Lab assay of single mutants.
Amino acid sequence: CHSECLGNCSQPDDPTKCVACRNFYLDGRCVETCPPPYYHFQDWRCVNFSFCQDLHHKCKNSRRQGCHQYVIHNNKCIPECPSGYTMNSSNLLCTPCLGPCPKVCHLLEGEKTIDSVTSAQELRGCTVINGSLIINIRGGNNLAAELEANLGLIEEISGYLKIRRSYALVSLSFFRKLRLIRGETLEIGNYSFYALDNQNLRQLWDWSKHNLTITQGKLFFHYNPKLCLSEIHKMEEVSGTKGRQERNDIALKTNGDQASCENELLKFSYIRTSFDKILLRWEPYWPPDFRDLLGFMLFYKEAPYQNVTEFDGQDACGSNSWTVVDIDPPLRSNDPKSQNHPGWLMRGLKPWTQYAIFVKTLVTFSDERRTYGAKSDIIYVQTDATNPSVPLDPISVSNSSSQIILKWKPPSDPNGNITHYLVFWERQAEDSELFELDYCLKGLKLPSRTWSPPFESEDSQKHNQSEYEDSAGECCSCPKTDSQILKELEESSFRKTFEDYLHNVVFVPRKT
């Protein structure tokens, strides 16, 4: 048989008469490798580009789960590009990614509803959504962080984005990388972005840091009482949809009607710091009717980097990364020049730590249904340095008659930039024990000054392991946590139920 035959053949030295091919099969003959313009397919066939392209389009058009959109890589027609490569849609070739590779997620039936953290986790790592997304989240724990972890990498949506009755959302900033909504599939009414009845939605994105392009379709905003109209108009300008909307697409009466839409800028007039305090004062603000001013709200939190936005980490279910302080308005003076500047002394802060701070007014709604208010920009203030805590785990070892090696770990709280350490030492008198000992005694162990690591005695271990207080009263049991108490109650309830079950099964009433 021919060298490319495997198993047997019907005619000697003829690659077209093989029972099976050793390498690849091409047009009725066995070959060692697939010549151009053919590609290896499933490690035994040679196919042309049209064959591989037909497989790709067949799966793409069917949208069946589990099928493969075949691509070409290293002269092979394979189910998908290997790690580190992405497909070129024009020629199906796998090309190296520039940075992290995109991950295209194809949605069944063309859309997916995100109504819980669990459903959001199914899209973790996706960068391109081939379909439409509907966000409908009523509640949950730590929602802002969970949504950002699972949806934060999405850069492109081919269909539309719909935010509907998501009472738990305060902001859409968890879509931190969303840059493009194509609108290839539109919501009824030709809408590519749809926001309806979101009672706590206050911000779409921080438009000073976020760009969003909507290729096709219109915007729809109705019944978002805490979303200011200025935020919607800003989205029109940034996304390129200005002029597409009709009169009733953006409701003037049901958007922002319960919001404090600040239209003035508060400026800080005085800032002073110490290692654990920050004193702030800002310019006074009074609405047209000074009785509408209820006070100020001061927001602050630790910020290692200057990239904080107002609604980071917030949701309507209680999660809030900001510390909020309510401040009463100052006494009002008739003389504008003698107006008191409101302020606040922030206490209990960490030394040498940068804080993000902003302040906003708290006002009631005027009778004319106009909203007044003022808010400052987010500023960054760093507390002063102070003395560091003591170095940890000092170790001293003498390696000769004239040297001592000293080692330690950095302090747990540096409280500033540590530039150097101060080492103090003092000579001590020799131990009298060394002169009084009889060095001729056998088995004498000389006193040693070398360091030995501390260890816990058996008594201390027994005390720590004991669940009861000892007789001397030195140790006591740790208080039980809520989960331990709940577990004990469940076990007790189970024992009672099981005992009742045994009584009912074992003891049967005697027939009379």
Rank of each mutant, 00 (worst) to 15 (best):
K103S: 05
V104W: 07
V104P: 03
V104S: 07
H106G: 09
L108R: 12
E109Q: 15
K112P: 03
T113P: 06
T113S: 10
T113F: 01
I114P: 01
D115W: 11
D115M: 05
S116I: 01
S116G: 09
T118M: 09
T118I: 01
T118D: 07
A120I: 04
Q121G: 01
E122A: 15
L123T: 05
R124V: 10
R124H: 14
G125D: 03
C126T: 01
T127K: 15
V128S: 07
V128T: 07
S132Q: 07
L133W: 03
I134K: 02
I135N: 00
N136V: 08
N136F: 03
N136H: 09
G139Q: 15
G139W: 03
G140R: 14
N141L: 05
N141T: 11
A144S: 15
A145G: 09
A145E: 13
A149C: 10
L151Y: 02
E155R: 10
S158A: 12
L169C: 14
V170M: 08
S171L: 02
S171E: 10
F174E: 01
R176I: 10
R176S: 13
R176Q: 15
K177E: 15
L178K: 02
L178V: 05
I181S: 03
E184V: 08
E184M: 03
T185M: 07
L186R: 13
E187Q: 07
I188L: 11
I188W: 10
G189R: 10
G189V: 14
N190H: 14
N190Q: 15
Y191H: 10
Y191R: 07
F193M: 10
F193Q: 02
F193H: 04
A195Q: 03
L196S: 08
D197L: 11
D197M: 13
Q199H: 04
N200M: 13
L204V: 07
W205S: 03
D206K: 14
D206T: 07
W207L: 10
S208T: 11
S208W: 11
S208A: 14
N211F: 05
N211Y: 04
N211E: 09
L212C: 03
L212I: 13
T213I: 07
I214L: 10
T215M: 08
T215S: 13
K218M: 06
F221K: 00
H222I: 06
K226A: 03
K226F: 02
K226Y: 05
L227F: 04
L227G: 00
L227I: 06
L227K: 02
L229F: 15
L229V: 10
E231Y: 01
M235G: 03
E236V: 11
E237L: 06
S239G: 07
S239L: 12
S239N: 05
S239K: 12
G240L: 15
G240T: 01
T241M: 13
T241Y: 09
T241D: 09
K242E: 10
R244G: 09
R244Q: 13
Q245R: 13
Q245S: 12
Q245W: 04
N248F: 09
D249R: 05
L252M: 08
K253F: 14
T254D: 05
T254H: 15
N255V: 05
N255T: 06
Q258T: 05
A259L: 12
A259G: 05
S260L: 07
C261V: 04
E262F: 04
N263V: 07
L265R: 10
L266P: 03
L266A: 03
K267Q: 09
F268I: 06
F268N: 02
S269C: 14
D276G: 15
K277T: 12
I278L: 02
I278P: 01
L279P: 01
L279R: 11
W282I: 03
E283I: 06
P284K: 03
P288E: 10
D289E: 02
D289H: 02
F290S: 05
R291E: 00
R291P: 01
D292H: 04
D292C: 13
L294I: 12
L294E: 03
L294T: 05
G295N: 05
G295D: 02
F299K: 06
F299D: 06
F299A: 14
A303F: 14
Y305L: 10
N307D: 15
N307G: 03
T309A: 09
T309R: 07
F311Q: 09
G313L: 07
G313T: 08
G313A: 04
D315R: 15
A316M: 07
S319Q: 04
N320H: 14
N320S: 08
S321K: 14
W322S: 07
T323F: 13
D328P: 12
L331R: 12
L331Q: 14
R332S: 07
S333L: 08
P336Y: 00
S338L: 14
S338P: 14
Q339I: 13
N340E: 07
N340P: 11
H341N: 12
H341L: 11
G343H: 13
G343R: 10
W344I: 00
W344R: 14
W344F: 11
L345Y: 12
L345K: 08
M346Q: 14
R347S: 03
R347A: 03
G348W: 10
P351A: 09
T353N: 05
T353F: 07
Q354N: 07
Y355T: 00
F358T: 05
K360M: 01
K360Y: 00
T361H: 02
T361S: 05
L362P: 00
L362R: 03
L362M: 08
V363H: 05
V363N: 06
T364D: 14
F365H: 15
F365G: 00
F365L: 05
E368M: 02
E368I: 12
R369H: 05
R370S: 05
R370Y: 05
T371H: 09
T371C: 00
G373Y: 01
G373E: 07
G373S: 02
A374R: 01
S376T: 08
V381C: 04
Q382W: 10
T383M: 04
T383L: 02
T383I: 08
D384N: 09
D384H: 09
T386Q: 03
T386S: 08
P388E: 02
P388L: 10
P388N: 02
P388T: 10
V390T: 13
D393S: 14
D393E: 05
D393P: 04
S396W: 12
V397S: 15
V397P: 11
S398G: 08
S398K: 00
N399L: 12
S401H: 06
L406V: 11
K409A: 09
P411W: 02
P411N: 03
